[in-house]
Design a protein around this nucleic acid. Sequence first.
DNA 1: CCAAAAGTGTTAGTGATACACCCATGT
DNA 2: ACATGGGTGTATCACTAACACTTTTGG
Lengths: 228, 228
Amino acid sequence: MSLENRNQNILLTVDIIVFSVMHDKLNVLLIKRKNPPFQGEYALPGGFVKDDEDLQEAARRELVEETNVKNIFMKKLNVYGKVDRDPRGRVVSAAYIALIDHEKFQLKATTDALKAEWIPYEHIKVLAFDHKKILSEALKELRYDVQTTNIASQLLPNRFTLTELQRLYETILNQELDKRNFRKKIKTFEILKPLNETKMEGAHRPAQLFSFKEKDYQPLKDKIKVFL
Amino acid sequence: MSLENRNQNILLTVDIIVFSVMHDKLNVLLIKRKNPPFQGEYALPGGFVKDDEDLQEAARRELVEETNVKNIFMKKLNVYGKVDRDPRGRVVSAAYIALIDHEKFQLKATTDALKAEWIPYEHIKVLAFDHKKILSEALKELRYDVQTTNIASQLLPNRFTLTELQRLYETILNQELDKRNFRKKIKTFEILKPLNETKMEGAHRPAQLFSFKEKDYQPLKDKIKVFL
DNA sequence: CCAAAAGTGTTAGTGATACACCCATGT
DNA sequence: ACATGGGTGTATCACTAACACTTTTGG
């Protein structure tokens, strides 16, 4: 089974779903297409994989090229390979989820005029190609991950209050949560450490600041059991 | 961004992880490699995707070609694209999980001398390429799915007893389960329907036979909640 | 002293775990 | 009558869900 004389006309791309939460809205980084097909419609950032780069490397490179967003958390989502997903030819795409906290984003946004735009998820009705479907699956994954890993750390600045964290969860899950129960539950996760600082802002009691014990992606222990 | 003058030398394959449970062992369908690299070692069945076929179609075709296994349940697992995963060149692979019940398998096995062999999971120490890693992830997915969907239906014949079902779960999860608790839990899933038949076998009380309400892959309602 | 968000406990209900005996059959 | 696997119930414990008041601060 030699590889040289294979004649395959399939192109491989990466697409990146970048999520960020700002102003209590879940936002997705999209690019408005300048050329057909789907001219004028929004699409996920992405592009062709080079022969000598890993898929995630390709995703990072494309993200910098198209949006100037660097050094952010990324996670493999899935592969999309329907024959007709790109009208121009056979294109198979590996999708990556990326997360960025709104503070980092704001820094970048001021430095450069980007082709990319943040669009609130709820406003996104259609996307080019099968990107709407990819986005839906990405959100499902994000909702699962935020409840079973410490991935929320990627969407918040280093220091935050429990109320800010709760807002993040509510925004991602699109569901109000009870304050007392939320605090009890998040405590059992054992992913936060209290800081010796408070946030004083406005005419009310100052809030205790927290940070994540670990910034690296880690599953929570003992969560999600059905039989065992 | 035209596609024609892209010069990409990446080949796309599919690999299939076929699971079956027989004699209380979880088995995986593997192929012994006849040529280098990894000559003589076991590998997952798979092969190159054709330009005009969907990924799952390709997986089905390769499975028939290499193992004569047809018409079975399949589910996308993930994509594997590390630059060095195949020493012969750049090969990106989409992995599919497939499930087959041991009765169907036994029919096939008698009809043809297959290149493929069923190997008990616990005996599999090394595989060619990155297939051991792919297999590990596939098992993790299977263990998750069996607890959150009706996917077990794909691994059992149409009619089965609760004890047989429990053995299946125990085999996949590699964990003994309490009989009474298992029956209570599986009842809450509401995926089984009792038949008007019993299985009489051996010198003991006959066992009620059941079948799955739905054979199609369906998530269980209301399972797996953390916050909501 | 008022407004505004932070912070905290209890109760009732639901689901999980652990555990032991009777039932129907063939020999 | 005995051996074999089929079938069932209960008590404890842990977790979930629902709910309201006090605290600290700035103005």
